[in-house]
Every structure is written in C-alpha cells, then in structure tokens.
Design a protein around this nucleic acid. Structure first.
Lengths: 203, 203
DNA sequence: CTTCAGTGACTAAGCGCTTGCTTAGAGTGG
DNA sequence: CCACTCTAAGCAAGCGCTTAGTCACTGAAG
C-alpha cells in the first residue's frame, strides 16, 4: 500500500469510533474479503482484531450489522469520490472520463472493500438492501446523465445507453476482483487506462 | 429461457450420468448461485433435487466435489464456445470480435453458471484450483494472441495488452452478475453490444 | 486523600442449533 | 441371491450469539 492509498484508507475509517469498533470493522472487512461473508466466522473476526469472540457483540448487534456498516461506508465513498472528480471538469466527455477514472481507481485502490461491496449485497437484510441499492443507483445515474447529455449534443456516440452504462460499471467493479498492487501497477494507472478505453469507445 | 438457450443448456449437462447425478448437480448449481457456495447447504441441494440429504453422498464424495464438477464443466464450456466462434472468422479484428461476442453472450446466457465460475474459485481445494486456473488462462490467451497479432500488423490499436485483455474479460464476466432475461434483452444482443464497444476501443 | 458505588469495555464459558457427512438398513430390478 | 439406489436417523464439530462476571477507571461523598 503506497502513501496516498494509506492516507485515503485512514480517512475512510477515521469516523468509526471508538478505536475498538474500528479495529473490529476492519478485521471483519478482511475476513469477508478473504473468505466471503458466509464463510467468515465471528471467531475469526475477533481473532484478527486481537479480542475475544464476545467482544464483537459489545460494539455490534450482529455479524450482518458489521457487513451493513462496511457496505454503507464503501458505497458512500465511491459515490463521493466520483462526484468530487467530476466536479473539477466540464463537458460530457471530460466528466465521463473523470467518472471512469475515479470509479475504476477506487475499486483497484480499495480492492478488498470493492470485493465486499460488489458481491455481498444478497447477505443484507431487506432494510439495509434498499439503502445500499439507492446509493448504487445514484452512482450509476452520474454516468448515465453525462452519456445522455453527450449523446444529445453529438459529443458522444451512444447507441445503447443502459448497456454502455453497465459496461462502464463492469470495468470498474471487476477491477476489485483481479487487482493487486503487484499485478496491476498503481490504482491511478488503471483509472487512466479505463478512462482512455471508454473515451475511445464513445467516439 | 428461450428455446436456443434451453437447447444449449441441455447439451451442457447431457453427459452427466445417471440422471440423478445430473439433477443433483443442477440443484447444487442453483443453490450455489442463489446463496453462494458457503451458505448453500447439502440439505438445500438435496431438497431442490427432490431427494433425501444422504442421496448427495451416493453420487458425490463431498459438497466441494460438486462445486469442482460445476466449475470444470463451466470453464470448459466457455473456452469451447469462444474457440468455436473464433474458428469461423479470419483476421485479428474479426476474431477478437468473435471472442468478445461469444464470451459475453455465454456469461449472459448461463448467468447462474457464470456467477459460480467467476466467484467461487477460492472455495476449491488446491488440486482443483490449478486445473480450473489453467482453463481460465487458456481462455485469456485466446484474446491476448489476437490483440498481439492485431497490434503487430497495425490493424488494432493496443497500448496496454494485459490491461486491455482484462477489460475485455471484465465486460463478459460481470455480465453474469447483472444479467437477467428481463433486464438485458437476449444474450446475443449483449454479445453484439460488447463486440461493438471493444472494436471501437481498439481503433 | 481515601473510599466506594457506578460505568463501560471486555472475557470465559457455554447454549441451542445447524452443518457436512456417516451408518445401517430398506426397496427394487436382474 | 447380488448390486445398486436411496432413506431414516444421527454423530461430531462448528456456528452465531448470550450470560454472568472481571477489570480498570470515574467522580462525588466522607
């Protein structure tokens, strides 16, 4: 993990207090990413956090509540970083590229978090499911709006709006599955590559 | 499921004999896709197959052996259909488009199988893991070879070979996650869309 | 300055339940 | 009779979570 990633990672979890709650949540994230939510045990989580099995229940009501927190923090984080990147640009092409770059590099940078956010949705109870789905759809809408605007003024070539949006999301989401710092270079370069590929396919 | 899909689906499992073994394997596939390998229980699998829990062990040594069979059949099937599609075409662009179209439409068509093959690799024991990984790499090599050839003779524009291969695989693999016959149209149209997008990004 | 009830973080032990899998035997066709 | 397919019953182990209590610390009363 490079310095930039370390700083952003610390920011992501800084507001989880007290420190023991944060340590448990990070331990849960590691366990969920390593083995999947269902295979990860509360004993494994507590061991990774250096505490007894019962300590989990001092800070969280259940294992699935920990997953819910992780999912919320993760989804809010991608949405925020995509928004921030787009705000610095003007025009559909530029803003689409900004989105793609931010979205893909986020998934590479926080690949353990990305794996969990992408594939453990089904484990959430219905209330939480709706909340998280709404965040995901808001993120999708960010690109969809740019593609629609770009198609309208002829700046972008878009035959199938929904299909193109899904393709863009796929590039990003799937980065979390295969990316490692060893194999993929730094997260920014993934973002740049994907932004480049997407711009080419929209002209 | 349309007629074409039904026929291909039947072909996929036809060689699993006797019929009880096949019914159990298909029940396991549904259970793994619905809830994930770890969350799916052998009792759930046997119930879906209309048999008692012990019946599983008449035909398979363990739950994980069922997963291994499903993974092998799935990976062999994508590889075969990509090869078949490419054999009908000539030249890097055409053959790359054939690969993308076959790979993505396979993942849409067999989306439950695609979900399992893509995300349950970690549950396999080491021997099986290696066998499956080899099939996956052979599939990747199919596109990589075309992109290399296309780049060499100037027909295709490829800045980052490995990155472009991964992007192509991501489009296909992730289709299994979001595709449903209701939301995505027919599998072929997904394949055509992705082939089109990829060709545009390679020019 | 000492005392001590109150508070919040944490653990040892374990409860009730479900898991993957086994065993012993029944049913059936050749 | 054997060979094969399947089931009823259940075992050992591991699961999420609870209970009862320890411990370090706080702040007001004596």
């Amino acid at each position: 993990m490079d310095d930039e990633t370390a700083r952003l990672y610390a920011d992501l979890w800084a507001h989880v207090e007290p420190e023991s709650s944060r340590r448990l949540l990070l331990a849960a994230l590691d366990a969920f990413a390593d083995r999947g939510f269902e295979a990860a045990t509360t004993r494994d989580i507590s061991r990774r956090a250096g505490m007894s099995p019962a300590a989990v229940y001092v800070h969280y009501r259940s294992k699935v509540e920990m997953l819910g927190e992780i999912m919320r923090i993760g989804h809010e984080s991608v949405l925020a970083s995509a928004r921030a990147a787009m705000d610095e640009r003007d025009g559909p092409s530029e803003r689409t590229a900004a989105f793609v770059s931010a979205f893909s590099s986020w998934h590479a940078r926080f690949s353990t978090l990305g794996q969990v956010t992408a594939h453990e949705l089904r484990a959430l109870p219905p209330e939480r499911f709706g909340e998280i789905l709404a965040l995901r759809q808001a993120t999708e809408r960010l690109v969809a709006d740019e593609l629609r605007a770009g198609a309208a003024d002829g700046e972008l070539h878009v035959d199938d709006l929904q299909g193109t949006v899904r393709a863009i999301m796929s590039l990003g989401v799937d980065s979390a599955r295969w990316y490692t710092p060893q194999r993929g270079g730094d997260p920014e370069s993934i973002g740049r590559l994907h932004a480049d590929l997407v711009l080419r396919m929209l002209r």
